[in-house]
């Protein structure tokens, strides 16, 4: 089981994950065209709402009333980002349409 789970703060694994993610991020996102930069920003707002995961752990772990308050506040803010971010990005991307060229004839 130790091979599957490295629960203790495995610095090496986390640094590996971090560095690879940074490279993938640069590689993928530098190919996003300028016309989609606004949806990219709102979409990355939504992705940064992933801190919801951390917020849930904080709010659900019943350590003390302060962590409960902090956690719940964090859950609210993160959920706004997730829900609002994905919805508004979808709304924007829906508008990016290519009209058929036949209209002129």
């Amino acid at each position: 089981m130790d091979l599957i789970v490295c629960r203790s703060s495995c610095l090496i694994c986390m640094s590996m994950v971090l560095i690879l993610a940074i490279f993938v991020g640069f590689e993928v996102i530098s190919k996003v065209p300028a016309k989609l930069h606004t949806p990219l920003m709102s979409g990355s707002n939504a992705i940064s709402g992933i801190t919801l995961v951390g917020a849930i752990i904080a709010a659900g772990s019943v350590e003390s009333s302060l962590t409960l308050i902090l956690g719940t506040l964090a859950v609210i803010f993160a959920t706004i980002n997730v829900v609002g971010g994905y919805m508004v990005t979808d709304r924007m991307l829906e508008m990016f349409k290519k009209k058929p060229d036949g209209e002129r004839e």
Binding site: A74, V75, V83
Partner: peptide, 30 residues
């Protein structure tokens, strides 16, 4: 999946937070 993880014991405040956040998020996005 995070909600299912063993660190999460109490769901009441999480649920309340998610509901409030979703409503605000959805409305502002619309």
């Amino acid at each position: 999946m995070t909600l299912l993880s063993e660190e999460v014991i109490d769901y009441r405040w999480i649920a309340a937070g998610i509901v409030v956040g979703s409503i605000i998020g959805a409305f502002s996005a619309r």
